[in-house]
């Protein structure tokens, strides 16, 4: 136990102020009513769905949770159930085999739900391409999208900026 405490003291607080985004963030959906924004403020539960990503985006979502970025300080947390989720964070081109699962997750969320399409694949099918029998389309072809975060993969700063854009703009 002493060693754990010593290590914690040695490392100290490493959380940094949020930097500027490196990749483009696009606001595509309708703006939220200010009243709803106010209700979300300080607390936002996200359900992340990998609809076909290569796992690169997932690594960066994990990184957004590390002590440097500490996404939870903005009141943002990831939830296991779509029933409590305010936002759906979708990665990957939507594969044919994930299309139904994605729609069902979206339908299980209380409305209005925010949708963020994260990464070049989610935005436009990326390197896998639309001319592909296995791919149902970009996220916006399947469910309504509010914000698109570009990048392959987007950096943790981009992810947090994108999520805040969806909330604040």
């Amino acid at each position: 136990m002493m060693r754990i405490l010593k290590q914690l003291v040695k490392v100290g607080t490493i959380t940094e102020p949020l930097g500027d985004a490196n990749n483009d963030i696009e606001q595509v959906g309708e703006k939220l009513e200010p009243i709803i924004r106010k209700r979300f403020a300080g607390s936002l539960a996200i359900r992340a769905v990998d609809a076909g990503s290569c796992n690169g985006c997932e690594l960066e979502i994990h990184a957004a949770n590390n002590a440097y970025y500490d996404i939870e300080r903005f009141g943002i947390c990831f939830t296991a159930s779509p029933r409590f989720a305010d936002m759906l964070l979708v990665t990957g081109p939507v594969t044919r085999n994930m299309e139904t699962a994605l729609k069902m997750t979206f339908d299980a969320m209380p409305q209005p739900a925010l949708v963020v399409a994260m990464g070049d694949c989610a935005a436009n099918c990326g390197v896998f391409g639309r001319d592909n029998y296995a791919i149902a389309g970009a996220v916006s072809d399947i469910i309504p999208v509010d914000v698109i975060i570009h990048g392959c993969p987007p950096t943790p700063t981009d992810i947090i900026r994108g999520i805040l854009t969806a909330l604040e703009s």
Binding site: S53, N97, M98, F128
Partner: peptide, 8 residues
């Protein structure tokens, strides 16, 4: 579920 038709 994440079959992306990479070989094709």
């Amino acid at each position: 579920f994440v079959h992306k038709g990479i070989e094709k």
